[in-house]
C-alpha cells in the first residue's frame, strides 16, 4: 500500500500526520509526506531558483524545509524511522531535486516500508494530482481546508482514495461508521473499512439509509454483506437501519468519535461537478474524519 500525506504547517498538520503514520504502521505501507509551497509567478521562477541557491549557500533553508524538518522530528520521536536515520538528524543537504517540481528526501522506515519527504510548489490540487498520477498512491490523507472548493476538487480530481483528517483522532475509543448502500463504491469501501477496523481493533457501526419506508432487496443485501465482511475479520458490527435522507442520517449518526468510511459516488462526473455527491456533502457538513474509497 502507498500512502500520500499532504501537510501544510506544524501548527495545523499534526493530526493529519499522526493518522497517516498510524495507517502506514498498521498496513506496513510506504509513505510520502508532501509539502506543497505557494505558487510562484512564471515570470519569476528562474530568479527565485537563483535566489534560493544563494540562500542555501548562506545556510538558510528554502521555504517548506522547516515543515519537512518538523515532520522528520515527529517521525524520529515516534520511532517511525530507523534509529540510525533518526540519529543522523534532518540532512538538508540530502534533499534531492528530482525535476518535475519535486524535491525529495528518502528515509528508512522502522514499521513501514520507507518514508519520503517531498517538497512541491504550486497550486495544491494540480500538484497532488500530479504526485498521485506519477507515483500511484492508494490513499491521500489531507487535513480539512477552509477553501470552499477544496473538498470538491480532491474528491473529483485526485485519483486515489481520500482521507480528510480532522482534529486529533486516536484509534482507541473511536468507532468506525461504514455507510453502506447498493452502489458499486460500497464494495471497495467495505474492503478498506474492514481492514482499518481490524488493524485498529475499532468497534464498527454499519449504517444503511433508505429514502423509502421499506428497504429494498439491494439495500438489505448490501447491508448483510457488510455485516458479514466485518464478522469475517473478527469484529461484531452494530447494524443500523434508518429511513430518511442518506447524507443527513450519516451526519446525525456520526459522533466526534466516529471515522466515516464511504465509497466514492459513481454518478456521471459532470453531474458530480455541478451538483456534488453524497460523500462530498458528508465531508462538507460533518465534523468527523471521512475516508472516501475510490
Amino acid at each position: 500500500m502507498k500512502i500520500l500525506i499532504a501537510i501544510s504547517s506544524k501548527e495545523y498538520s499534526k493530526p493529519t500526520l499522526q493518522v497517516g503514520m498510524w495507517a502506514a504502521k498498521a498496513f506496513n505501507a510506504s509513505v510520502t509526506i508532501a509539502y506543497v509551497g505557494q505558487k510562484i509567478s512564471a515570470f519569476g521562477t528562474s530568479d527565485v531558483g537563483l535566489a534560493q541557491e544563494s540562500i542555501a549557500k548562506w545556510g538558510i533553508e528554502r521555504p517548506g524545509v522547516q515543515v519537512l524538518e518538523w515532520a522528520f522530528n515527529y517521525l524520529a520521536e515516534n520511532k517511525y524511522i530507523t534509529p540510525e536515520t533518526a540519529k543522523a538528524g534532518f540532512q538538508r543537504n540530502t534533499l534531492v531535486d528530482r525535476g518535475k517540481n519535486r524535491v525529495e528526501l528518502h528515509l528508512k522506515g522502522n514499521y513501514c516500508e520507507g518514508v519520503d519527504l517531498i517538497l512541491r510548489r504550486g497550486d495544491i490540487i494540480p500538484e497532488l494530482r500530479n504526485e498521485v498520477a506519477q507515483n500511484g498512491y492508494d490513499i491521500t490523507i489531507i487535513g480539512r481546508s477552509k477553501k470552499r472548493r477544496m473538498a470538491h476538487d480532491l474528491v473529483q480530481y485526485i485519483d486515489s482514495s481520500i482521507y480528510i483528517a480532522r482534529d486529533l483522532a486516536p484509534p482507541e475509543g473511536h468507532r468506525l461508521l461504514q455507510a453502506v448502500d447498493d452502489s458499486k463504491g460500497t464494495a471497495k469501501a467495505l474492503v478498506y473499512g474492514s481492514q482499518v477496523a481490524k488493524a485498529f481493533k475499532m468497534p464498527v457501526d454499519v449504517l444503511t439509509v433508505s429514502k423509502r419506508e421499506s428497504f429494498g432487496k439491494g439495500y438489505m443485501g448490501a447491508h448483510k454483506k457488510a455485516l458479514r465482511a466485518f464478522e469475517k475479520v473478527g469484529i461484531k458490527p452494530v447494524s443500523i437501519l434508518k429511513v430518511g435522507d442518506p447524507v443527513s442520517e450519516v451526519i446525525k449518526t456520526a459522533t466526534a468519535k466516529h471515522l466515516i468510511v464511504m465509497g466514492v459516488s459513481h454518478l456521471n462526473p459532470i453531474v458530480k461537478f455541478f451538483k456534488g455527491s453524497k460523500p462530498l456533502k458528508v465531508i462538507n457538513q460533518c465534523n468527523s474524519p471521512v475516508l472516501i474509497v475510490k
Binding site: Q38, I40, F43, G44, D47, V48, I55, P63
Partner: peptide, 15 residues
C-alpha cells in the same frame, strides 16, 4: 502584488 516584478516574487517566495 507579488507578480508585478521579479524582485517582489523573490521576497514573496521566501515565505
Amino acid at each position: 502584488t507579488a507578480v508585478a516584478a521579479p524582485a517582489c516574487t523573490i521576497i514573496y517566495a521566501s515565505g
